[in-house]
C-alpha cells in the first residue's frame, strides 16, 4: 500500500473517524438504554400502581359490605347496587344477537344501511326498557344510568369500551314481553330485517348480566340538600 505520502493527514482523518464512531456508538447506546426501557418501566410502574389501587378499593368494598350488619341498611344498599349496576345480576330474560347484514349491498343503496349502527342498538335497548327490562348489557358492558351508546368509527362504544359486531344484548325481564316488544309489527326487528341485518332473539331461563366495571366518578356534581328548586 502507498500511504507513505500523507501519514499525518491519514492519522488526522482516522482520529476524526474514530471520534465519530465512538460518539455515534455512545448516543445509540444512550437512546437504546433510555427510550424503550424507560417507557416499559413507566408502564410497569403505572400498572403496579393501578393494581394496588384496585386491590385497596376491592378490600374497602369488601369491608364496607361486611360492616353494614343492619339488615335494613344492607337491603337498601343491595337495592341501590342493583339499580346502579354495581352487582352482577341473573334471572329470566332474553339474549339478542345483532349482526351486520349478510346480504350483498345493492349498488344503488348506501352500504351503511346494511351495517349495525349505534341508533339500531339504541332503538332495541329503548324497546327493551319500555317493555320492563330490569337490567341490560351490551357485549358484556352493563348499561347504567350514565352509559352511552355511541358510534365510534366501525365500532360502538358503551361505557367508553368499544366493541364490534356481532352485538349481544342481554336483558333480564319478562321473556314474552321483551320478545314481543322487539318483534312487534313495524317495530325494531321489522325495520332492521329489511336490510338483512340479523336479529336473533333467544329467550332464556337464566341470563347473567355483569356488573358495571369502572368506578363511578363525580367530579363536578355535588350532593344537594334542597328538595325543590329555589329561585
Amino acid at each position: 500500500m502507498h500511504f507513505e505520502k500523507g501519514r499525518l493527514s491519514i492519522a488526522c482523518v482516522c482520529m476524526v473517524l474514530g471520534f465519530m464512531l465512538v460518539i455515534q456508538f455512545r448516543s445509540t447506546e444512550d437512546i437504546r438504554a433510555s427510550q424503550p426501557t424507560q417507557r416499559v418501566e413507566e408502564l410497569a410502574a403505572r400498572l403496579h400502581q393501578a393494581e394496588a389501587e384496585n386491590q385497596a378499593l376491592e378490600a374497602e368494598n369488601r369491608d364496607l359490605k361486611g360492616m353494614s350488619g343492619d339488615a335494613k341498611s344492607e337491603k337498601i344498599t343491595d337495592d341501590i347496587m342493583m339499580i346502579s349496576g354495581m352487582t352482577p345480576l341473573e334471572g329470566p330474560g332474553i339474549v339478542i344477537t345483532i349482526d351486520d347484514s349478510a346480504k350483498k349491498a345493492k349498488v344503488e343503496n348506501d352500504p351503511n344501511l346494511y351495517l349495525v349502527h349505534d341508533e339500531d342498538i339504541l332503538k332495541v335497548v329503548n324497546e327493551l326498557r319500555a317493555a320492563g327490562a330490569e337490567a341490560l348489557s351490551i357485549n358484556g358492558q352493563r348499561l347504567t344510568a350514565n352509559s352511552e351508546i355511541r358510534c365510534a368509527g366501525p365500532t360502538i362504544s358503551v361505557n367508553n369500551v368499544r366493541s364490534a359486531p356481532p352485538f349481544e344484548i342481554r336483558a333480564i325481564g319478562d321473556k314474552d314481553n321483551l320478545t314481543n316488544a322487539i318483534n312487534m309489527r313495524g317495530g325494531v326487528a321489522d325495520s332492521l330485517k329489511v336490510w338483512g341485518i340479523s336479529l336473533n332473539i333467544q329467550p332464556m331461563d337464566n341470563v347473567w348480566i355483569p356488573a358495571y366495571k369502572a368506578t363511578a366518578k363525580y367530579k363536578l356534581a355535588n350532593r344537594s340538600s334542597k328538595e325543590e328548586e329555589t329561585k
Binding site: 482516522c14 473517524l17 471520534f19 465512538v22
Partner: peptide, 8 residues
C-alpha cells in the same frame, strides 16, 4: 489516530 479519536 483511530485509537486517539476513540478515546476522545
Amino acid at each position: 489516530g483511530l485509537l486517539i479519536g476513540g478515546a476522545l
